[in-house]
Each structure stands twice: as structure tokens, then as C-alpha cells.
Design a protein around this nucleic acid. Structure first.
Lengths: 246, 246
DNA sequence: GGCACGCGTCGGCGTCCGGCGAACCGTCGC
DNA sequence: GCGACGGTTCGCCGGACGCCGACGCGTGCC
């Protein structure tokens, strides 16, 4: 029956977009906020290019992804922060199950990713969690009545050069359950602004895959302005050269 | 391949629970926060009892629903506020499409539901949106740096007899996109507390289906303490007697 | 111009999954 | 005890869907 599209049908259609292993893997990969080519996503998901192509058109038509064509490449990224938030939320609700051991290479890549990464447009991993903790303990954020920026926090932001934020529909501060730390890190407009500013200041730099590095300058700076110990920021043994697939 | 359950696989499994028309309809029905019997849900979703039974066990095993058996009945409800929030979020992300006209009976029921209802444990519909608006314009909530309760708001809550709230993991105040009004209403721990308190005070009463009524006392009280006009609270023409199915 | 490459389309295949009715089980009411 | 009733299990069917390989098209490089 194609009669009137009922509410359940619409919800099911949306969920169905994420209810496939391949599409889910694609969306998780795109959570780093960057644009990937169709071929990269196909290899990342471990399927043939033709298969991925069909999935990608479905995701674009469903409004989760947007595409940008350049020459013979088709770049894809999440349609916006709202979509990223949706996927993060969904991923945060998966039942907590111990993560099984992996191969050596994969473990090394995992370590880099667990250490610090971006989650769409904000900081995640151990770094993201530590930053949120530091903001709370220093009274720059307050969690009594829901997460909120304090006046001291506003001053602190001005100190490090973050432009005053005034949100549209996007909440300014928002917890995002971190899937490696199993604790919240900082999302929302503020999370995005901090992530951007840290990179501008040279405190963080892109690593391989979706991991990022804290630069030496960043270690010093984060210790100074947030009191985050260098031990918490030391990168994993090595930076994992390779292509960060799977 | 049943190798190590990858991240994408886990996310896909969760999404698959909601990626079916019937299961989605069931979850939406349960968004009213009450416990339904298996038979009721089957009729509501328009499938055979046997079909619904299988869906329900899947949803329970997946952690979205919890069951409570009483005699020959099997009562089901959402597993908790986190699940309700997840479904609300998902429902809020469905692309905005004009709702088609429906039958007369259905339209009447829709009107009652659009007027005022509960969304899991908080107020929704026109009433829920008006309450949120009123709290904002009276300075009891502040939306400058994300939604937050103001000191004045805390006093106001004490006035109407809401116990001071202090959240665990649940955010105190949170926007929840209303799918009839297409505007946010108030969710989170505060939304739930207000919904409960309004009912305790006799300002609201259960209507049919998931709709609720604003009592005459409620109309007067809401005008007094929140300045919400009676016109905004007048119930639709009649209260729709029937069983509120489909 | 020729070739490699990235991507899209198409047809076919296998699998999964949702639907139902029938039969069965336990509970409740008389 | 008996029948009515709610719920569950089982077997079966049909459709949907994910996957691939092959082919065709356009782009970019040499």
C-alpha cells in the first residue's frame, strides 16, 4: 500500500538508511567531517565500487549526505551538523559491549584514534573528554542545570580568541557520548569552535585517518590554559603511517 | 562473516530495529510513555498478533523496549527516557513534508493530538510549544547559550511546587522537535517534572489515545502563572470519544 | 589520440525478512 | 471443568534488498 505515507513509514525509511552495514560504515567514516570520494568509501566499507555507488545515491536522496562533483571524482560528506548529531546519538545508544581485540596494525590505528580525533566538527577521543572535564572543573562550563557556559567561560573563550558564539538552532554546548571513552565529550557550536580554534592556533594537527595529533605547542598550551597534564596528551607510541582503512 | 562485530554492524543493527514500518509504528505509539499490551500494539500497527509478537521480542532483545507480564497480558513500554529521546530525535530528522489530509474521524483524533499530548514523559503538541515559549519570554528559561534554567526560573518552579531537580545523566532542559508544530517543545528532566506536576495539580488530565486535556482549572492557572492565553489552550471541538487507533 | 581511471547502470543471484494462518499454551471467567 | 481469550511458536511464501561483474560513459593524464 502506498496510500498516505504514515508517520511510522517515514521514520522507518530514515532508519533504513542506516540499517545496513555498508551504509552505516560509510556514515561513520564520514563522521570526521571531511569529504570522501566514492571510491575511498567503497574501499573503507569493503564493497565493490558499484555497490557503494548505489548506497551513496540512496544516502544522498535520503538527505543524509550531500555530494560535490569535481572532474571525475564524486566527493561526499554529511549533509550538516544535524545529521552528524543524529548519527552520533544513534551510535551512542548501541548497547555497551566490550570491544574485541584486533590485529596489530588495526590496534595501532585504534590507539591513535582513541587518543584524539575529530567527531564531525568537534574534538573527540581522550582529548575531547579531557577538554570537557577541564572546562567543568575550572568552572568554565557548569553542569548543574544542564551543560551551560559560565560567564568565566565566556571570558576564557575571548582570551584564546574564540569569537562570541550565538547559536541558531544548534545548541551551544552539548554532550556527545564518546564511543571509545564511553564518557561525554563536548559537541555543539562551542565544541566546533574550539576544535577550529585549536587547529588555527597550531595546537592540533591532522593525523592519519580521522585521528589528530596534539602538537608540542598544543601540549604546552593546553597545560597552561586548561591544566591538562602532558601525560594525558602524549600521543600513542607511533603515529601509524598507513592508510587507516577498515 | 561473523568475525568481530564492527562498529558499522552495531550501528546498523540498532537502526534496523527501527527500519521497519511496523516496529516504527509501535515505537511511535509507545512514545506516550504508557505501557501497551501486545494485542493493542498489533491492532495499532495493523498487523496480525503473531507478527507483532515477533517484532516485540526483537525490540525487547534489542533493548529498546522492556516488558512486564501480568497474567495473560504482556505489557510493553519504552526502556527509558534515553530510548524515547532517541526516537524523538530520529523522528525530528524526517524531512519536512506536508502532511496529507486524512479521514474525518482520523482528522478529529489528529486535532486532539495536535492540541496537547504527552511525548514519552513531557508535554508536547501546541500546549508543549506554548509552555516553552512562555518560559522563554518570561525569562524563566534562557536560550542565549543553549537552553538553560535561570535563577528566576528556579524560583518559579519552587512556587508551583516542583521539587528542585538535579540531573544524573539526563539533561535538565532540552529541546524536542515537535512533529505537529514543527517547533521545539520542552523535554529533559524539567519537561518531565512539569508534565507530572501539571497533572498532580489537576491542570491537565488524560484524554483519549495519547492526547491530554487542559482542565478549566488548568486554563486559569496557566494564564496566571505563564500568561498563556485561553485561546491557545481551548480544546478542539470535541474530545473524540473512540479508541484512538491508527 | 590513446589509455587509465573513477563512476554509474544493468541484470542476475542469493539471502534476508516481514507477513500470515494454524496449532499450541497458559490465564481468566463462568 | 469448560470455553474464551491473549500470546507464542512454527512453517511457509513472496517481496525486497545487498552484492557482484560486466559494460558504457566522461574525465584527466601522458
Amino acid at each position: 500500500m502506498t496510500a498516505p505515507p504514515t508517520d511510522g513509514r517515514r521514520l522507518a525509511d530514515l532508519a533504513a538508511l542506516l540499517a545496513d552495514d555498508t551504509r552505516a560504515a560509510i556514515c561513520l567514516a564520514l563522521l570526521d567531517g571531511r569529504a570522501w570520494t566514492a571510491g575511498e568509501l567503497a574501499r573503507c566499507a569493503g564493497v565493490a565500487a558499484s555497490t557503494a555507488s548505489e548506497h551513496l545515491t540512496r544516502l544522498v536522496h535520503g538527505g543524509l549526505l550531500v555530494e560535490e562533483r569535481q572532474g571525475r571524482h564524486r566527493y561526499l560528506r554529511l549533509a550538516g551538523p544535524a545529521v552528524a548529531q543524529l548519527i552520533e546519538d544513534l551510535a551512542g545508544h548501541v548497547p555497551p559491549v566490550p570491544r574485541p581485540a584486533r590485529s596489530l596494525r588495526a590496534a595501532a590505528a585504534d590507539a591513535a584514534v582513541a587518543h584524539a580525533r575529530t567527531c564531525y566538527d568537534h574534538l573527540a577521543g581522550r582529548l575531547g573528554v579531557r577538554v570537557r572535564d577541564a572546562l567543568l572543573t575550572r568552572g568554565l562550563l557548569d553542569n548543574a542545570d544542564g551543560l551551560a557556559l559560565t560567564p568565566a567561560g565566556r571570558d576564557w573563550l575571548a582570551d584564546i580568541g574564540v569569537e562570541p558564539l550565538r547559536g541558531g538552532r544548534r545548541p551551544l554546548v552539548r554532550d556527545c557520548l564518546d564511543w571509545t571513552e564511553r564518557r561525554p565529550h563536548l559537541a555543539g557550536a562551542l565544541g566546533a569552535a574550539l576544535c577550529r580554534r585549536f587547529a588555527e592556533l597550531g595546537w592540533t594537527a591532522r593525523g592519519s585517518g580521522r585521528s589528530i595529533r596534539v602538537t608540542p605547542a598544543g601540549v604546552a598550551a593546553l597545560a597552561e590554559v586548561l591544566g591538562i597534564g602532558a601525560a594525558d596528551l602524549a600521543p600513542p607510541r607511533r603515529d601509524d603511517g598507513g592508510g587507516g582503512r577498515a
